[in-house]
Design a protein around this nucleic acid. Structure first.
Length: 219
DNA sequence: GGAGCGATGTCCT
DNA sequence: GGACATCGCTCCG
């Protein structure tokens, strides 16, 4: 049994179970319509589902950061629309993947209505299933500490086989996508808010959200 | 276990 | 040409 840093809503409930596992409902586009801070907070506890080479990799979101469009110098969308950041300006619920420091990818989901920039960066997941494959993708020995798999924005992309090609712009609200986000009813018991990390500009704003006490958050 | 630092590609000035 | 929403390795305590 995986460690659960929270509790189930409405559980157990007949009809929601599937082969002993809670049913996962994709989050609709409307979920991402709000401002990035609200969406970042609400994404805690949700599941990221990655279908890759016939396998399904799943991680629970335990750490997020909000990046506003206008008035946020730290956001990629701050300088205005470019080829690189165009997904942030598009419809909500799409994957924005960018390449950073010459070797790492980072995954975001777009927020706000079409035409308005904003997004949420995924900073850490708690691995739920497919741990052996995640370790392989990370180049770690099978049985390596699960904390090394998805604790960090670059790590989680590597563990889920996320690159720009083929993933950037993907619709995260559709279970037919190779990558989508779902809700299994899990509700975090406590949430912490801190300033964002790893950035130089606007590093004082409290826009980083974590599940309190979770062991899989980043440093 | 923590501070320091090098690796490395892409985007925008 | 410089900055960069990172990571993992060293070296030191």
């Amino acid at each position: 049994m995986a460690t659960l840093w929270g509790k189930k809503r409405n559980s157990p409930q007949r009809g929601r179970e599937h082969r002993g596992l809670p049913r996962v409902r994709p989050l609709p586009e409307g979920f991402y319509l709000g401002d990035p801070a609200a969406v970042a907070r609400q994404l805690l506890g949700k599941l990221i589902v990655r279908k890759l080479d016939g396998q399904t990799l799943v991680g629970r979101i335990v750490e997020t950061e909000a990046y506003l469009g206008k008035d946020d110098p730290a956001s990629h969308s701050f300088p205005g629309l470019t080829a690189r950041n165009s997904v942030m300006f598009g419809p909500p619920g799409r994957a924005y993947v960018y390449f950073i420091y010459g070797m790492h990818y980072c995954l975001n989901v777009s927020c706000e209505p079409d035409g308005v920039a904003g997004g949420v960066l995924f900073r850490a997941l708690e691995p739920v299933s497919g741990l052996a494959e995640m370790a392989k993708l990370r180049g770690l020995p099978d049985g390596a500490s699960p904390r090394l798999l998805t604790s960090g924005p670059g790590r989680l992309c590597q563990a889920l086989g996320i690159v720009r090609e083929g993933i950037n712009g993907v619709d995260l609200t559709s279970p037919r996508s190779a990558l989508y986000i779902g809700d299994d009813g899990f509700v975090p018991e406590g949430v912490m808010v801190t300033p964002r990390i790893g950035i130089r500009k606007a590093s004082d704003l409290p826009l980083r959200f974590l599940i309190s006490g979770n062991k899989f958050t980043s440093k």
